[in-house]
Deep mutational scan, measured.
Amino acid sequence: WIARINAAVRAYGLNYSTFINGLKKAGIELDRKILADMAVRDPQAFEQVVNKVKEALQV
């Protein structure tokens, strides 16, 4: 799951650890299995999560 998430978030200019930190700051409580599945099956929803994380990180 970690490898999938890392590959997906790198397309948005983040790395895995920064993304996970941003999830916590944004108050998003999705587990890694769901995030990895979302990255593959629903990229639009995953992009929305990434955008919320970037807002929380102020990137």
Rank of each mutant, 00 (worst) to 15 (best):
W1Q: 14
W1F: 15
W1T: 15
W1L: 13
W1A: 15
W1V: 15
W1R: 02
I2H: 04
I2V: 08
I2R: 11
I2W: 08
I2Q: 07
I2A: 03
I2E: 12
A3N: 12
A3Y: 05
A3Q: 13
R4D: 15
R4V: 15
R4N: 12
R4A: 14
R4T: 15
R4Y: 07
I5V: 06
I5T: 01
I5K: 00
I5L: 07
I5Y: 02
I5H: 00
I5R: 00
N6E: 15
N6A: 10
N6W: 05
N6F: 03
N6D: 15
N6Y: 02
A7E: 15
A7T: 12
A7F: 06
A7K: 15
A8M: 04
A8S: 05
A8I: 04
A8D: 01
A8N: 02
A8F: 03
V9Q: 00
V9C: 03
V9L: 14
R10A: 15
R10P: 01
R10W: 06
R10Y: 12
R10K: 15
A11V: 10
A11Y: 06
Y12I: 03
Y12F: 14
Y12N: 04
G13T: 01
G13Y: 02
G13S: 05
G13D: 09
G13A: 04
L14N: 00
L14Y: 05
L14M: 13
L14W: 04
N15M: 07
N15Y: 06
Y16D: 02
Y16G: 09
Y16F: 07
Y16A: 11
Y16T: 04
Y16C: 03
Y16V: 06
T18V: 14
T18G: 08
T18A: 07
I20A: 11
I20M: 14
I20Y: 08
I20Q: 07
I20D: 13
I20P: 00
I20G: 03
N21L: 08
N21H: 12
N21Q: 14
N21S: 11
N21G: 07
N21A: 13
N21I: 11
N21C: 03
G22A: 04
G22R: 01
G22E: 02
L23H: 01
L23K: 01
L23P: 00
L23N: 00
L23S: 03
K24E: 13
K24R: 06
K24M: 13
K24Y: 14
K24G: 13
K25M: 10
K25D: 09
K25P: 09
A26H: 02
A26I: 06
A26Q: 07
A26F: 02
G27F: 08
G27T: 06
G27Q: 11
G27I: 04
G27A: 10
G27C: 03
G27L: 06
I28F: 07
I28G: 06
I28W: 05
I28T: 04
I28A: 06
E29I: 10
E29P: 10
E29F: 11
E29A: 14
E29D: 14
L30V: 14
L30K: 07
L30N: 07
L30H: 05
L30Q: 12
L30R: 09
D31T: 09
D31H: 11
D31R: 08
D31C: 04
D31K: 09
R32G: 14
R32L: 15
R32I: 15
R32P: 15
R32H: 15
R32E: 15
R32C: 07
K33D: 09
K33C: 03
K33M: 15
I34H: 12
I34M: 13
I34R: 10
L35K: 01
L35V: 07
L35Y: 05
L35H: 02
L35T: 02
L35S: 01
A36P: 05
A36L: 14
A36S: 08
A36F: 13
A36H: 10
A36Q: 04
A36G: 09
A36E: 03
D37W: 09
D37F: 08
D37V: 06
D37G: 07
M38E: 02
M38I: 11
A39H: 05
A39D: 04
V40F: 14
R41V: 15
R41A: 14
R41F: 13
R41H: 13
D42S: 10
D42E: 09
D42N: 09
D42V: 05
D42Y: 07
D42C: 05
P43I: 08
P43L: 05
P43V: 06
P43T: 05
P43G: 02
P43S: 04
P43Q: 04
P43K: 04
P43E: 07
Q44H: 12
Q44N: 11
Q44R: 11
Q44V: 11
A45V: 08
A45M: 14
A45G: 13
A45C: 02
A45I: 08
A45D: 07
A45H: 08
F46I: 02
F46H: 00
F46G: 00
F46N: 00
F46C: 01
F46L: 03
E47K: 06
E47R: 07
E47P: 00
E47G: 12
Q48W: 09
Q48Y: 08
Q48F: 11
Q48N: 10
Q48V: 12
Q48H: 13
Q48G: 14
Q48E: 09
Q48L: 12
V49D: 00
V49T: 04
V49N: 04
V49P: 00
V49F: 06
V49I: 14
V50Q: 01
V50A: 05
V50K: 01
N51Y: 15
N51K: 06
N51V: 13
K52F: 08
K52Y: 07
K52A: 12
K52V: 09
V53A: 14
V53Y: 01
V53E: 00
V53Q: 00
V53H: 00
K54T: 14
K54E: 04
K54V: 09
K54H: 07
K54N: 07
K54C: 02
K54L: 09
E55L: 10
E55K: 10
E55G: 10
E55R: 08
E55C: 04
A56W: 07
A56Q: 09
A56P: 02
A56H: 10
L57P: 03
L57S: 08
L57N: 07
Q58R: 13
Q58C: 03
Q58A: 11
Q58P: 12
Q58F: 14
Q58V: 08
V59P: 15
V59L: 08
V59H: 12
V59M: 13
V59D: 11
V59C: 05
V59K: 05
